[in-house]
Amino acid sequence: MCIAHHNPSVQVTADHRIEIKQNEVPELKPGEVLIHPRVTGICGSDIHLWKHGQIGDLKVLDNLVLGHEAAGEIIGVGDEVKNVAIGDRVAIEPGIPCNACFLCRQGDYNLCQDVKFIGMYPHAGSMQRYLVHDARYVYKLPDNMTYAQGALVEPVSVGYHGVERANLILGHGVMIAGAGPIGLVTLLLVKAAGCTPIVITDLSEGRLAFAKKLVPDVITYKIDPKLSPQENGAQIRKIFGDTELEAPSRILECTGVETSIITCAYVVRRSGLLMIIGVGKDTFNNFPFMQLSFAEIDLKFSNRYHDTWPTVINMISNGIINVDDLVTHRFELEKADEAIALASDPRKGSIKVLIEDMQSKL
């Protein structure tokens, strides 16, 4: 099957340009499927790869097809594939682990150091008309789910993995730091988990207003950059109450920003848990070591996800969470450069920007 002649794709170059150009499609191997990605969400990492050319040690050394938040249609099936068939609508889990290392064997395949993650160099992502992927990491969508909802399974999975690791307690107060896309999906999940009260913080009044529209009973707090983390932390604590017992036992930090993490350390109650979901700098200079140590606050981290697709699909399909309102903009594949530019501009007020390709299949 030769379709290389018409496979438009969105590529970032090593010199930080976005190009829409044709991309070759590899031949199907046993165990693989050919997918027509119908919807791909733009992630902050896509923008980071464009503007900075790397995330940590992951560098863009040549043209790279972006995209990893995706859902699409199966249009080709390799030998030995039994879980899906041509015509199936699927959500795509973007990471393909080695399935051989001790991390994979113990179930923590999100930590596999040999993972092939689409949209990260050198593995082509989903912002193209045709994508070849390992059949073990695609999941059928129920008839009542849209492709857009299928694409949102990926960012929801990021929040879900952090929420799962945080061991939330029914009826306990929770603070969420950051009202970006991951903070907002985390808000939906925390609400579904029965935590109360829920406070979400951000620097942006617009994003806090969006959070309030998403979950009307959430309490918003606009971080005051003129105040120290300790002072902002004290103000947030007052929202929960005056006693140590009333302070939130769980904090979900979704920005990765140093000052935000420090603020969280002064909000979480003694013997509580601070879960860091956000991605930040390589090192911090002002880590509040003794604040966490004296209070025996557990500090945990979350990296991507594992075994979340079936659960998140069930939650969306069965109405436990409603992700539709997260989508603020939609663009055709051929206008993806405009979509990425918009998503990168905080003045535009976007939350989740989708790239859609509804062209008829091959």
Rank of each mutant, 00 (worst) to 15 (best):
F210Q: 00
I261K: 02
V174M: 10
V257H: 00
S228C: 10
P248S: 12
D202L: 01
T186V: 03
G256R: 00
L184E: 01
A209C: 01
T259E: 03
T196S: 15
V279Y: 05
I297S: 03
L299K: 08
G178R: 01
I261P: 03
G278Q: 00
S249N: 12
K213C: 07
E205I: 06
C264L: 04
A209L: 04
L187C: 07
R270L: 05
I239L: 15
A177M: 14
G206T: 07
N303Q: 13
S260A: 15
T283S: 06
E258A: 09
K226W: 05
K191A: 15
L208M: 01
L273H: 15
V267L: 07
V215E: 14
I262G: 01
R207T: 05
A193C: 05
E246I: 04
G180T: 00
I239W: 04
I200G: 11
S293I: 06
K222M: 12
L274D: 10
R207F: 03
S293F: 13
P229K: 02
V199C: 04
G178S: 04
E258P: 04
L203D: 03
P181C: 01
E296L: 03
T243P: 09
P197C: 14
T243M: 09
D282L: 11
D202V: 00
S228Q: 08
G241L: 11
A234L: 11
T201I: 10
G241E: 12
